[in-house]
């Protein structure tokens, strides 16, 4: 028993070390965000915060309004999540409930194209968006995720296992239309699976870099990742303290949100993987 405790002690020490490794880059970031450029350059590494936070903030905000990027990213990610969830549920319901001609073909087509890497159509997508006059708008970021094959696939599989046709029959006998049935019965049944997928959709959209990079031009429309990229080439990069602060602003709110949502997010990831 005693030996077991020593082993456990060592194991916990290793785990704590891993925690430190996971966290120390963020800690360096936060500390450096409060120091002046010359402090960072001259005094090197320290665990003690400095006093230049406001000064760094002023420098940063003078060139780049990161809060704006935050708002933009939030707008895009929320829109994408809602649209993608709703339309994927609709499509999954269509595939799961009805037997129509060509259904299998369409479903397989969707599955095959699910395997295609997102960058394959990038050049054509860019050209299409340009011709449509939609460059520098959010439409090319928000509308295409309506067609999310993986989400449809996942929801359809879920629906097949949990839904009894008798439920629908009962509703039809009550005189409900098909759309109403979807809203009244299909959607609520799928809700747990929709929520799981919504988290992935949101994180994916929030982190998306290459698409907004290619599509957006005006800095005031930049999403957060693109704004972070632009930070590097901007005057902010002259001041390491402000640079760290800029990164911190993009990171800390996510950390805080995660504090409250971690349990939910982790169980979603677990569910997403096992249901495969």
């Amino acid at each position: 028993m005693k030996k077991n405790n020593i082993v456990k002690g060592i194991l916990y020490a290793v785990l704590v070390l891993l925690v430190i490794i996971s966290f120390i880059p963020f800690y360096m970031m936060i500390v450096n965000a409060t120091r002046t450029n010359s402090e960072i350059l001259q005094q090197g590494f320290t665990l003690i915060p400095g006093t230049a936070l406001m000064q760094n903030y002023d420098t940063l905000i003078q060139y780049m309004n990161l809060w704006r990027g935050f708002a933009n990213s939030l707008f895009v990610a929320v829109s994408v999540t809602l649209l993608s969830s709703y339309f994927s549920a609709l499509t999954a319901f269509g595939f799961a409930v009805y037997k129509f001609k060509g259904k299998n073909f369409l479903f397989i087509l969707m599955l095959v194209l699910m395997m295609v890497p997102g960058q394959l159509g990038l050049i054509g997508f860019f050209d299409l968006v340009r011709v449509m006059g939609l460059l520098d708008t959010y439409i090319p970021l928000i509308i295409p995720p309506i067609a999310a094959p993986f989400v449809v696939f996942f929801l359809r599989q879920y629906l097949m296992t949990v839904m009894h046709p008798s439920l629908l029959e009962a509703a039809r006998i009550d005189g409900a239309g098909e759309i109403k049935i979807f809203h009244k019965i299909g959607l609520p049944i799928m809700m747990p699976a929709v929520a799981t997928m919504a988290i992935f959709t949101f994180i994916g959209s929030w982190n998306n870099y290459i698409l907004p990079l290619v599509v957006l031009f005006s800095p005031e429309k930049y999403t957060l990742p693109v704004m972070m990229g632009a930070l590097r080439g901007s005057q902010v990069a002259e001041n390491l303290g402000s640079m760290y602060l800029g990164i911190a602003i993009s990171v800390v709110p996510i950390m805080v949100a995660f504090l409250f949502l971690s349990k939910y997010i982790i169980s979603s990831i677990s569910a997403g993987a096992v249901k495969e």
Binding site: R130, D136, F217, A230
Partner: peptide, 22 residues
């Protein structure tokens, strides 16, 4: 006034100038 970092400047501007929107 819109300021775009110089690395991205030509890439960002060209499609806009070709299209005229914005």
């Amino acid at each position: 006034l819109t300021i775009i970092p110089i690395e991205d400047y030509p890439t960002r501007l060209r499609p806009v100038l070709q299209n005229g929107t914005g």
